[in-house]
Design a binder for these strands. Structure first.
Length: 425
RNA sequence: GGCAGGUUGCCCGAGUGGCCAAAGGGAGCGGACUGUAAAUCCGUCGGCUUAGCCUACGAAGGUUCGAAUCCUUCACCUGCCA
């Protein structure tokens, strides 16, 4: 197999750290390389950030390697130590449910077939659940030196702050054992992951070196943050942007990428799309020259939505975005266009007889979390109905305000839209 | 097990009896500018039937006219000692 994949990954900016690159190139050139990446079920869904390493698996597969996607049914029960402090353990049912859901998502991003590069999907609970403590301590624990473990950055920070449980301290051993297991069982010689996984990955590399006398590889993708240092994939509201359409609607997903800052759009195209370099460079140039057209953002949003939600969803959300963000006359939209567009955003049913005010509309549609927040929005000049600013918090819609199909388009701020469907009273 | 220190709003953090829904910072939210960017500036930032009331400073009790602030017990965290 070709080693061009490494050059491509570098061009895309997807390589943060790696072990001996020449050695990896040699392994890549000598046959079908097997690599893996693990995903812990820390939530009911993967989020946008998980796509970095997950799509990297796919890129390797397309280049002729065999990917193993690992769902962390075991590691998810322990929790990778993080700076913010000790995690609270999720109960077993939760972990099991989340593992199943994550598995389901993982299998959509790599290809399964009978060829030598056909993907594998594994769950590390399968080789850890029946392992005894004594076995674990003797076979795995013996190879780890406490001094090395204490020297890890995360551990040092945690010890300096709130301390850390033995449980989380042991996480490294579990993940290292996974790599060893996959090496023995499937000949896996490369583990990829986010750059925060470097220590865990290298732990496995060292373990394999100690017990199998073999050199295997590690490669991490960069941790992506925006200009304010926010972790990529955190929506402006603070929550994550999820792959699950029930948790983040395709419309919200699309909007997240449309709103990416200029500086991010170019690199995200490289990280997350499979577009050829020429096209990406073209879009980068377009952004530099005519930034207001947001062509990179639009293309990014379309690609990402198609990747995760499919082409049909993309058509629907682009149409909805066009209609609702046209800044044109909403009244000129016909009923079916408007209904289709509003189907992509949150909606609420109201009755004019109830005498709903703008505050009620904002709360009912979920655009405001509370009546107080809704009043604040009105007072701040951020409330709109049918693109017209509403300045009085006792404003009420009337029959004349209704758009075709009996809709009111409610907006908070520049881009938070919802529909209120007026029921015949 | 002993001793000491700690637990404050989304996060960090000030606050040692009334002037505390709680300083300050960050995040978030809205506005201005622009391009559904970035930066910057301004405003806002527990809830409600909003001149008032309710909930809130780890939990539960207590002292007091009045407690985030004092006392008791409990839980958890950190450090030192065993």
């Amino acid at each position: 197999m070709s080693t061009d994949i490494l050059d491509e990954l570098k061009w895309r900016g997807l390589v943060a750290q790696s072990t001996d690159e020449d050695a990896l190139r040699r392994d890549l050139a000598s046959g079908v390389l097997t690599l893996y990446c693990g995903f812990d079920p820390t939530a009911p869904s993967l989020h946008a950030g998980n796509l970095m390493p997950l799509l990297t698996l796919r890129r390797f597969q397309r280049a002729g390697a065999r990917p193993i996607a690992l769902a962390g049914g075991a590691t998810g029960m322990i929790g990778d130590p993080r700076d913010v402090g000790e995690r609270s353990l999720n109960d077993l049912d939760t972990v099991r449910t989340w593992t199943d859901r994550v598995r389901g998502q993982l299998e959509r991003f790599v290809e399964f077939d009978d060829s030598p590069t056909g993907a594998l999907l594994v769950n590390n609970l399968d080789w850890t659940s029946r392992q005894s403590t004594l076995e674990f301590l003797r076979d795995v624990g013996k190879h780890f030196r406490i001094g090395d473990m204490l020297g890890r950055e995360t551990v040092k920070r945690r010890l300096a702050a709130d301390g850390m449980s033995y449980t989380e301290f042991s996480y490294l051993l579990l993940q290292s054992q996974d790599y060893l297991h996959l090496f023995r069982r499937h000949g896996c010689r490369l583990q990829v992951g986010g750059s925060d996984q470097w220590g865990n990955i290298v732990g496995g590399v060292d373990l394999i070196h100690r017990v199998e006398r073999q050199s295997v590889h590690a490669l991490t993708t960069p941790l992506v943050t925006d200009s304010e240092g926010r972790k990529f994939g955190k929506s402006t509201g603070g929550g994550s942007v999820w792959l699950d359409p029930e948790m983040t609607s395709p419309y919200a997903w699309f909007q997240y990428f449309v709103n990416v800052e200029d500086a991010g759009a170019a690199s995200y195209l490289r990280y997350f799309t499979f577009l050829p370099p020429e096209e990406i460079e073209e879009l980068e140039k377009a952004t530099a020259e005519r930034p207001h057209l947001r062509s990179a953002q639009r293309k990014l949003a379309e690609e990402m939505t198609t990747l995760v939600h499919g082409e049909r969803a993309t058509r629907q959300v682009t149409a909805a975005s066009g209609a609702l963000f046209g800044r044109g006359e909403l009244r000129e939209l016909d009923a079916s266009t408007l209904s289709a567009a509003l189907a992509e955003v949150p909606t609420a049913d109201i009755r004019l007889n109830d005498g709903p005010t703008i505050v009620d509309l904002l709360v009912a549609t979920g655009l405001a979390d509370s009546r107080g927040a809704a009043r604040r929005t009105v007072a701040e000049g951020g409330a709109y109905v049918n693109n017209a600013k509403v300045t009085a918090d006792d404003w009420q819609p009337s029959q004349a305000d209704l758009l075709p199909g009996g809709w009111l388009v409610v907006r908070r701020g520049k881009r938070n839209l919802a529909g209120a469907r007026v029921q015949p009273s």
